[in-house]
Design a binder for these strands. Structure first.
Lengths: 188, 188
DNA sequence: CCGCTCATGTAACTGGTTACATGATTTA
DNA sequence: TAAATCATGTAACCAGTTACATGAGCGG
């Protein structure tokens, strides 16, 4: 069993978590969870997930059993004891340095340069951003429905995080509207 | 002039924005902005920035002038008209698909698996997360001070985004505390 | 039987990263 | 004068991506 001291990536640990939460499950299941997630952090691409579970199995964090239905096979993975330990270490406490940061929001990184736009376009931008947040909120609501009956309150709490985040960004857009109005006044 | 139809990356456009906002400026300045940012999205590594500005110059989105102070040279970049157009297209409206998503929060991705921890550790985790948010808030306050007198209200509004985000995540932690308490009760 | 989803996998690429190297200038 | 910072750059690496390929099973 290759122990391998290389640090696990964020995706590797997150996948470990998914397999703990829904396991035993297949790499395909992991992919589906990632693909249906309102977050676009990971695409759940085959090229990421299949090699990943292989790696984790080689390191002894996962074990698999091939399940067959007719001529069809599915590799079912579950955590080993070292896998569970690794997952717990990743979650913390203590919290890893890289977990302590401001979130990245592509809307914010664009809004930063709103000064470049004409007042009219600025207004249209803010409206478009509000529409975007509605799309995000709807995606979160869909996701929540899927896990409504999971029985895991901490899993469900991720929905709450998403909703609060949308709320905060809406409030920020309200402030942007006021800032834009002031900027327009100053010019005339 | 190599027009090059490849789509610009998020970092390329963000850097374009920085050079518009603070330009004419050097790649080193761009790196410093990224390194001092409370967001850890980009490290501002030399290996990312120097090749990037070269690429954008080849494509005609930037032009540079070498400035010398004694024996020391620095390459000062500013946007060309096509560069300004590209920046405006990136900002929107319309908003690019990839700008419409739930933010990624490593705290949330860990909290999702809090069910795995013992009640005591769960409590300690939430405390650690609260401390982490304080660190983030302080970093944002520092950043804000740097740009206090920039005169660009939209730039300053990114601070507000950060603060609202921290607030939202604190509120979420409060809810996690209640969820944890209920979970503990249910067990006893 | 055609198209869709389930299921696993690989190859080529990409957009960054870390680490290293070099030299000028500034500060303790 | 040593250490830190300014300033530019390259090489090796890495964790993901897209695109492709294969085949089973299922629904219209």
């Amino acid at each position: 069993m290759d122990v391998g001291n290389r640090e696990l990536s964020e995706l590797e640990c997150f996948a470990l978590g998914l397999i703990w939460q829904f396991g035993p499950c297949s790499p395909y299941d992991v992919r589906q969870h990632l693909r249906n997630s309102p977050s676009t952090q990971w695409s759940g691409s085959a090229g990421a997930i299949y090699p990943l579970v292989r790696r984790l199995e080689r390191r002894g964090l996962l074990i698999s059993k091939t399940e067959s239905t007719g001529r069809r096979r599915r590799r079912m993975y579950r955590l080993t004891r070292p896998g569970l330990d690794a997952l717990r270490r990743w979650i913390g406490p203590p919290l890893a340095e890289e977990a302590i940061s401001a979130v990245y929001d592509p809307l914010r990184s664009r809004a930063r340069y709103l000064g470049l736009l004409k007042p009219k376009d600025r207004q249209r931008w803010i409206e478009a951003a509000r529409d975007a947040l509605q799309v995000v909120e709807d995606a979160i609501a869909d996701w929540d429905e899927t896990y409504r009956d999971s029985g895991d309150e901490f899993l469900r709490a991720t929905t709450r995080h998403g909703r609060l985040d949308v709320l905060a960004r809406r409030q920020w857009l309200d402030e942007l509207t006021r800032i834009a109005a002031r900027a327009d006044d100053a010019k005339s």
